[in-house]
Design a protein around this nucleic acid. Sequence first.
DNA 1: CTTCAGGTACGACTTGAATCGTACCTCAAG
DNA 2: CTTGAGGTACGATTCAAGTCGTACCTGAAG
Lengths: 111, 111
Amino acid sequence: MAGRNLAGPEADALDLGTVFRALADEHRRSVMTELAADRSDSERGCNSFDLPISKQTQTHHFRVLREAGLIDEIDYGNRKGVRLRRADIDKRFPGLLTLLGAESPGGTAPR
Amino acid sequence: MAGRNLAGPEADALDLGTVFRALADEHRRSVMTELAADRSDSERGCNSFDLPISKQTQTHHFRVLREAGLIDEIDYGNRKGVRLRRADIDKRFPGLLTLLGAESPGGTAPR
DNA sequence: CTTCAGGTACGACTTGAATCGTACCTCAAG
DNA sequence: CTTGAGGTACGATTCAAGTCGTACCTGAAG
């Protein structure tokens, strides 16, 4: 059950336009915000995010995030895992993940 | 000749989704990158950016940037000025403008 | 006054993205 | 084996966004 890692771009190949386009969508941004808030960067299941959209659309969104280089997707066959590429993002675009915490105007309430 | 300032959102009202959507476009991002690179934040003419698009489309892009709260537009009647809202952006989304400098892999980052 | 460059308004076109329906695949548990 | 949940593939639909053509406005310079 090793689960193979689906292909994404190298850290140096991350494109700012692609990243911004990926983060422009509410659903994808909510996923990224949740991932960024968890400092342990543990792997999460794809449906552990409460997305109010069909599973086909979820597949689409996770793929966009992966192709933007923001997450890794681990394929176990009949289920899938997701992990934030924190190190690569911090290396290429330092400060981006912190920005996601500033979502609400009033408080960057650290929970 | 005073030139009146066109309306944009308050600093606290800046929305991350709107901002990311604004910065997802290549042309708008190139404008913002140029503005962010100039630390004097001086006012610039609208056609001082070498955008390879028609003037109607430029009008559209500058409006999107203004409505996202990223720039001020000063209307002089028969011409227009643009100024970066650096203070408001830094207050609401610190690090965002720095991010624009990391456009090319190896750009701002001295390695 | 007229001319002209800079800019806007409105509409039309086109492309891309988000969404979902249907069908199919994969694997673990019966 | 069969079943069922999680996920993918493909296509269709819908909608937002980027683009430009035409027409019009504004102010400075002739």
